[in-house]
Structures are given as C-alpha cells and as structure tokens.
Amino acid sequence: MLPNRSRTSVLVFLLPPLLLYCAAVLFPILQSLFLSFFSWNGISEMEFVGLQNYVRMLTADDIFWRSFFNALLYLAICLVLQLGGALVVASLLTSLRRGRELIKTLYLLPAVISTVAIAFLFVRIYSIDPVGLLNQLLHWVGLGSLERAWLSDVNTVLAAVSAPEGWRFTGLYMLIIYAALIAVPKELEEAAVLDGASKWTLFTKIRFPYIRPVWITTTIMATTYGLRGFDIPYLMTNGGPGQSSELLTTYMYKTAFTSTDFGYASTISVFIVIECLVAVGLILFMLKRKADS
C-alpha cells in the first residue's frame, strides 16, 4: 500500500531496531535452546545429552517445581496489586478536578527508582530488629501479635517479596489505563447517564469495553514481566529461607552462576520463555472469548 520510496524509508528506520532486537533477544533465546541439549560447566567441552536436562527438570527436580508454583503465586500477587490498583487509581483520577498531575507523579515515582534502592527500602520496612515500619504500624494499631520477621517466615516471605514488585509498577500501568479512560468518548457516557445508567453500569458497559485493547496489552506486559521477575526477590531473600521465595528466574541464575551448570540453567530459561508464550496465549484466548460472549 506504500510507494516504493516510502517502503524503503520504513525499512531503513526499522532495520536498526530489528537487528538490535535479534541480537539482544532472539539470539540469546536460540543460544539457550542450543545449550539446553548439552551438559556444560562453562569451561570444559560441552557434552551432548539430548533431552536428559528436560527429563531431569520435569521429573526429578523438586526445587524446580517448588520454584514454578512460587512463581505462579508471585505472579498472582503482582497482578492483583498492579492491574487492580492501577485500574482503581486511574478510575478515581478521572473524577478528580485538582491534583491529578501530583498524584500521577507520586504513583509513577517507584517505576523510576533504582531496584536496589527499592529492595533495601522494603528490607528495612519488614525488619524486626531494628523494628521496621510495618511492625511498628501493627504495634501502634494494637495488632502487635502479628509482628514478625516477614522475610524470615516461610509463610509470609513470598508475599513480602511480591509486594514491592507490585507497588513498583502500579503507577506505570495506572498511567497507561488512565490515558485510555480519558479517551473514552464523552458522548457515550453522557448518553448512558441520560438513560439512567449507574456508575457501575457506566464502567462495565461503556468504559471497560472501550479500553479492552489497552487492558489486554497491559495485562500481557504485567504477566510477562511478573513471570520474569528476578531482581527484587533475589536482592531481598536470594530465594530463602530454604526455597520459600525461590522463583524460576532466581533458581536459573543460581544454577548457572553458583552451580556452574549452564546446560541445565539454559533448560530452565527455555521453560520460562515457553511459560511466557503460553501465558500470553491464554490471556488473549480468555479475553477474546469473553469479548465474543
């Protein structure tokens, strides 16, 4: 549909980022796929083992399955905080007349703060000795019996490392959803109000269906990033205590650079890629099916 000159211009501008994407994303994925069929410690010669690493991962590695289920729970908590919080805040912002820019800036700040700073900030918040902010607040409101070492308790550590990740990106997704909400045609909303629609009906029948494409994109972004979450859990607990907060990403990293089993670590990385693709497919399928119904 474009003239030859325009097509050439498009190709010229697309080629550099496409090459960069291939070098930074596609090549490492293919390299990991290749290494997953070998046993290699990074120094000696690679030994071809075929599907042995995959069989070991799926049938003989309890830590892998513990990390997998931890990653799913970690993802669920992140999605509730990020998407749920973002939708609520964005909806409230559309009804505000003053202070919108200040609130948007405050919510967006965590996304631009260093990951290391966020990790150490929450380590102090969860601290039991010296008493951190969370335990101090529980004491002030008369819930001192709930005070604990949140990062050392196997029952709370996974939720504790998920909360900073959810808090970090809530503002970013809020901004995306807010931009979609203010683009909803006012004529549709006014017509619905004149017909006697409640605020809930207005949101579920007018606003949300209109922003569904943006919601799908945001959900995919949050899901894939949550499944690849690494830095904050690793910095806060390093997967401990035991494997209570071990994720597939942290387990893969330690397998590669602590156990120097690069072949098996590559197998785990291939699984993470497949997991992300399956998650995206399920999201698109479920949301499309719901839209059709």
Rank of each mutant, 00 (worst) to 15 (best):
L2D: 02
S6C: 02
T8F: 11
L14T: 13
P17C: 06
L19S: 10
C22S: 09
L26W: 04
L30D: 00
Q31F: 09
F34A: 04
L35F: 12
F38Y: 15
I43N: 03
E45V: 02
M46I: 01
V49G: 14
L51P: 10
Q52E: 15
R56P: 02
R56Y: 07
L58R: 07
W65C: 07
L72R: 02
I77F: 13
I77A: 13
L79N: 08
L79G: 09
L83F: 05
L83Y: 03
G85I: 11
A86G: 14
A90K: 07
L93H: 11
T94D: 03
T94F: 05
T94N: 08
L96G: 06
R97A: 12
R98I: 09
R98S: 14
E101Y: 01
E101L: 08
E101R: 10
L102H: 04
I103Y: 06
K104V: 01
T105Q: 07
L109F: 14
P110C: 10
V112H: 08
S114T: 11
A119V: 11
F120W: 10
L121C: 05
Y126A: 07
I128L: 15
D129K: 08
D129P: 00
P130N: 06
G132S: 03
G132T: 04
N135V: 04
N135W: 05
Q136H: 12
L137D: 00
H139D: 09
H139L: 11
L143R: 13
S145F: 09
E147F: 08
E147I: 07
R148Y: 07
N155S: 13
L158N: 03
L158K: 02
E165Y: 04
F169S: 01
M174T: 10
M174A: 04
M174Y: 04
L175Q: 04
I176P: 03
A179C: 02
A180E: 03
L181K: 06
L181V: 05
A183D: 15
V184W: 08
K186D: 14
E187F: 05
L188W: 06
A192L: 04
D195I: 05
D195H: 08
G196P: 01
S198C: 05
K199I: 03
K199S: 13
L202S: 11
I206R: 06
R207T: 04
W215L: 15
I216C: 14
I216G: 13
T217I: 14
T218E: 09
T219G: 14
I220L: 11
M221L: 15
Y225W: 12
L235D: 04
M236C: 14
M236I: 11
G239D: 11
Q243V: 14
S244I: 10
L247S: 12
Y253C: 04
G263R: 11
Y264K: 05
S266L: 01
V273Q: 03
C276G: 11
C276A: 15
A279Y: 01
V280E: 09
L282W: 09
M286F: 15
S293G: 13
